[in-house]
Design a protein around this nucleic acid. Structure first.
Ligand SMILES: [Zn+2]
Ligand SMILES: [Zn+2]
Ligand SMILES: [Zn+2]
Ligand SMILES: [Zn+2]
Lengths: 143, 143
DNA sequence: CTTGAACCTACATCTATTGTAGAAATAAGA
DNA sequence: TCTTATTTCTACAATAGATGTAGGTTCAAG
């Protein structure tokens, strides 16, 4: 029993286009085709795609996922490499949280300090026009 | 005294390409040109570009910035609209922090639970392959 | 055999830049 | 005035990770 791309999409929680995109960038293997040229997938494609979607939901990049899949395909291998990809991602998530918390504090200050009259005296506009009104000496890039 | 695009870039902390891009999408006005076709900016371009870069550093989207600039150009206007753009952005930042904190907890669990033998028994790989091993019932998209 | 749903490829779009190539302009020094 | 190094110009491509569209084909059920 093989699956059409639409059935695979439903089984793994992905869009059809996304599956074709993953195939295009070499993350999913090219499946067999019907005589008419439509893709037909085996059961293991569901596993692989679910792995990818779950890892995406947890914020891993497609490049990290590519590496994790390669490691997972080699079951006897020491898992240090896999763990360090996760730790690297965790570190990135922590850094992003820190940067966003800094933004959050600054935005709260802006919003709270505005007495809400006209834009000529709006604290939001003033702060954006003048970094000296910010509390933090600089802003880390968020993405 | 007018400024070349490179001088403007240095004054406002932007890349030359970025300035041309902002002009292309209508965020910066088209400046006058020399006979040879090079851009020459007035002093107010520094202000406008600095505003944009500062707002970007605080995470506002170019669309939000476009609206903020339009509001700022009309000083007698009630600043409610400006404030609500900031509040909307603040809400998005808070939501992103919450989603990232959820990811962080899950990643810590994965990393901490792995006893680090081979990939066949790696908790990181296992968790990515099976959402049932996750603590949270679902993962909010982060971006 | 018909028909509607699903599928195909190829391309465009989104955000916010950044990089490149090849040509032209400018500013400073000789 | 001439040379030369730096800057600027346009146009296009690339980045990440999908998603949307157009126009055409295939599949499966009745
Ligand atoms: Zn205000
Ligand atoms: Zn600031
Ligand atoms: Zn492990
Ligand atoms: Zn999960």
């Amino acid at each position: 029993m093989t699956l059409s791309i639409g059935m695979l999409a439903r089984r793994a929680g992905a869009k059809v286009q996304t599956i074709r995109y993953y195939e295009q960038i070499g993350l999913m293997a090219e499946p067999i085709r019907t005589y008419g040229g439509q893709r037909r997938y085996e059961e293991d494609a569901v596993k692989r795609l679910s792995f990818i979607r779950h890892a995406r939901a947890l914020g891993f990049s497609l490049d990290q996922i590519r590496n994790l899949l390669e490691l997972a395909d080699d079951p006897k291998r020491d898992c240090t490499a896999a763990d360090s990809i996760a730790r690297e991602h965790l570190a990135a998530v922590k850094a992003k949280i820190a940067a966003l918390n800094s933004l959050k504090r600054e935005l709260i200050r802006m919003v709270d300090c505005c007495d809400g009259t006209d834009t000529a005296h709006c604290r939001v506009i003033e702060t954006l026009a003048n970094h000296d009104l910010c509390a933090s000496p600089n802003h880390e890039p968020v993405q």
